[in-house]
């Protein structure tokens, strides 16, 4: 196994992030604060509790997931698209690295950034509303798993995209709507019955539900289903990644 090679990619990616550290840390802190001012304080004060949880606290896991998903896809796609675009990918492809090692380097770095971001948001949120985390380890596990899965999805997006527009459009067109409709700001049993059924096809519902369960011990769908869906989606992404490297799709002529 080429440990040095994986480490090189991982650290190189994190170093790129660190150069823009202020902006990387400041923007989630600001956006989280804004959400809490608007949804937590202004609107939340007029909302009732949901399942025994004050609205301000209820939206914390959803908001964190919203950012973590977007960041994971963004970081994951940018990490591999950038060298493809600039041409420096040649070096990675000519190195004695297995596909899995390349993926671990890029996706691991992207997921690490997302996890750090999620934790920063959690700390910021705690300044605005009081909440306890019922299952901290599960919380971390869901955070890490979601970050990895969507960074992996982002990686595939970055391999597939043939231009900057495509790189931007997929998150805006797919990820953001799915997240907003995935129960960030509401519990799915607040929806009309038909939409409750439809919404079960949205994978993000399972992520947010599971994550929220780790905070408050209550969930829209069963925790096992949440875990299963996340792992299932990850397995699909891994399979596609395997296919990408086997065929050299968009990486090799």
């Amino acid at each position: 196994m080429n440990i040095h090679g994986m480490r090189a990619i991982y650290l190189f990616e994190l170093a790129r992030w660190c150069r823009t550290l202020v902006q990387s840390v400041l923007s989630p802190v600001i956006s989280t604060s804004l959400y809490f001012v608007v949804f937590g304080a202004a609107i939340g004060s007029r909302m009732t509790e949901i399942g025994g949880v004050p609205y301000g606290a209820f939206i914390v896991p959803g908001l964190i997931m919203l950012s973590v998903l977007t960041e994971s896809v963004g970081n994951g796609s940018f990490g591999i698209y950038m060298p493809r675009y600039s041409g420096t990918i040649y070096e990675v492809l000519s190195a004695p690295l297995s596909p899995l090692e390349i993926v671990v380097g890029y996706v691991g770095a992207a997921a690490t950034k997302s996890v750090i971001l999620g934790l920063i948001m959690l700390a910021t949120a705690r300044l605005f509303v009081a909440f306890e985390i019922a299952h901290p380890l599960w919380m971390l596990a869901f955070l890490a798993l979601t970050s990895m899965t969507f960074a992996l999805f982002g990686f595939l997006l970055g391999v597939w995209a043939t231009g900057w527009e495509k790189l931007q459009v997929v998150p805006i067109l797919i990820i953001t709507p799915l997240t907003f409709l995935g129960g960030t700001f509401y519990s799915i049993d607040m929806l009309p019955p038909v939409w409750q059924k439809v919404t079960l096809f949205n994978p993000v519902v399972y992520l947010i539900s599971g994550f929220r369960w780790s905070f408050f011990g209550t969930a829209d769908v069963s925790v096992a289903a949440s875990l299963g869906m996340t792992l299932g989606f990850m397995a699909i992404c891994l399979t596609v990644v395997w296919w990408v490297f086997r065929t050299g799709y968009r990486l090799k002529a």
């Binding site: 080429n2 440990i3 040095h4 090679g5 480490r7 090189a8 990619i9 650290l11 190189f12 170093a15 790129r16 150069r19 060298p83 600039s86 041409g87 420096t88 040649y90 070096e91 990675v92 190195a95 004695p96 690295l97």
Partner: peptide
């Protein structure tokens, strides 16, 4: 073709290359 990680320093990129090849 000349390609480069435009925003990186020379030192960082050569260190990266060495690591990439498992050294």
């Amino acid at each position: 073709e000349i390609t480069s990680d435009a925003f990186e320093s020379v030192w960082l990129t050569v260190r990266f290359s060495r690591g990439l090849f498992g050294r």
